[in-house]
């Protein structure tokens, strides 16, 4: 008896597309938040530092699944109703962004002080110094940990299953209801698909690292 692989493909493909969609959207949200809160933690203004630190500490301490439930089920009671996709993207983006902010902060502060002083000596403005001197050097350090973080992000997209957004995990659970005897195969295939997407992320991260380190 052979497993009916071909019957599963359309559903798994739909699920993969939703998973990738959630992953890409929440990656955008989390990268924007990482940059804001990471650079904000190094700001010269105490208020900006305080807000950035509060965001990082709060959302790193929060359990993602609990946050997701709160955003999707409890927020409507405060008159804020989000679609499943929006709730998933917001919760994952907020959570991963807090971790990303720490990567941005530590990579930027790891660039030696001499670089900043040289920028001042050359009469570069604060923005020029940041964009042309500090960030290009910090970016090389950021890429490998961000690659790992994006794999964490991909894995956390599986949690949208709980709010019944039809991602890869959800579709596999539906398949399992229809093809009960094939449960181990379905979950095995599911693990394999996640592994493949993760491998793509680490490949991209390695290529990007090589690309950015060219000037060294």
């Amino acid at each position: 008896m052979n497993a009916p692989w071909l019957d599963w493909l359309p559903m798994l493909l739909d699920g993969t597309l939703i998973t990738i969609q959630v992953a890409l959207l929440s990656a955008v949200v989390s990268i924007v938040l990482s940059a804001l809160a990471g650079l904000g933690s190094l700001s010269r203004y105490a208020v900006v530092r305080l807000i950035s630190r509060a965001y990082v500490e709060l959302f790193r301490a929060c359990s993602l699944l609990v946050l997701l439930f709160w955003v999707y089920f409890a927020l409507p009671f405060l008159q804020i109703e989000l679609s499943k996709l929006m709730a998933g993207v917001l919760a994952i983006g907020l959570n991963i962004g807090a971790y990303g902010a720490e990567i941005v902060r530590s990579s930027v502060s790891a660039v030696s002080g001499g670089q900043r002083e040289a920028g001042i000596a050359l009469n570069l403005s604060g923005t020029q110094r940041m964009l042309r001197v500090i960030l290009p050097q910090a970016a090389v350090r950021m890429v490998p940990p961000f690659g790992n973080l994006m794999i964490e992000l991909l894995k956390s997209t599986s949690l949208v299953y709980f709010i019944t957004l039809s991602d890869l995990t959800y579709e596999a659970m539906v398949l399992r209801n229809n093809y009960y005897v094939w449960t181990p195969y379905i979950f095995g295939l599911l693990l394999l698909i996640y592994f493949l997407i993760s491998s793509c992320i680490s490949l991209v991260s390695r290529l990007l690292e090589r690309r950015l380190a060219v000037w060294r």
Partner: peptide, 22 residues
């Protein structure tokens, strides 16, 4: 490498629903 690249949720499903069948 494999365990780190796949979600905990799916691993839990695999252990809970597949292992008893295998």
């Amino acid at each position: 490498e494999f365990i780190r690249s796949t979600p905990l949720l799916v691993q839990a499903f695999f252990l809970y629903y597949s292992v008893p069948m295998l």
